[in-house]
């Protein structure tokens, strides 16, 4: 299931991480060679857990930069094209990154009071990879959106 991807030239690096307080901390980061990346199989396993049937393609719009220069903080916004009423609403949206050591990014829980099933956050991306968002309605039906992001400098492996 795991692809032992060759991390080669980027397996060792030192990144400067600056925290909000202004303090700058130098952290030496080492990704062990042969570190297994999550891959699409793990993403598929999470989708299978959410839904019995394969999610319908489309209906979930992902707003992402085409090229992210810094993998440490990549903005992501999703919008699900679905009504938000007491009878029919988007219950959960799972955002995943198929090339990260752990594919899960965040799971959003909505209610009819959300008004619209849309949210934004910022994520770490280990490298160029696909971002997948799976939305589940209150009746259990699912739909998904997918988009590729090119990452110039990978985030802290997770």
């Amino acid at each position: 299931m795991h692809d032992a991807l060759e991390t080669g030239g980027v397996s060792r690096r030192t990144l400067m991480i600056s925290f909000g307080g202004g303090a700058t901390v130098a952290a030496a980061m080492t990704l062990s060679p042969g570190l297994s990346l999550a891959g699409e199989a793990e993403v598929q396993a999470i989708i299978d857990q959410m839904a019995e049937a394969a999610p319908a393609e489309g209906g979930v719009d992902l707003d992402l930069p085409e090229i992210a220069e810094n993998g440490n903080t990549v903005p992501v916004t999703f919008t699900v094209d679905a009504p938000m009423t007491a009878d029919s609403y988007v219950k959960t949206v799972m955002v995943m990154a198929d090339g990260n050591p752990q594919p899960e990014v965040a799971r959003f829980h909505f209610t009819p009071e959300s008004g619209t099933a849309s949210a934004s956050t910022r994520m770490r991306l280990a490298g160029t990879q696909g971002i997948i968002a799976v939305a589940q309605m209150n009746d259990g039906s699912t739909m998904m959106g997918r988009k590729l992001v090119k990452v110039t400098i990978g985030g802290c492996g997770g």
Partner: peptide, 19 residues
């Protein structure tokens, strides 16, 4: 009315915007 489960892939200083 709203909640999020966050995983390690979320950036430092987590930002969440919603409606």
């Amino acid at each position: 009315v709203f909640s999020v489960d966050l995983f390690p892939s979320i950036s430092a200083n987590p930002y969440v915007a919603f409606f």
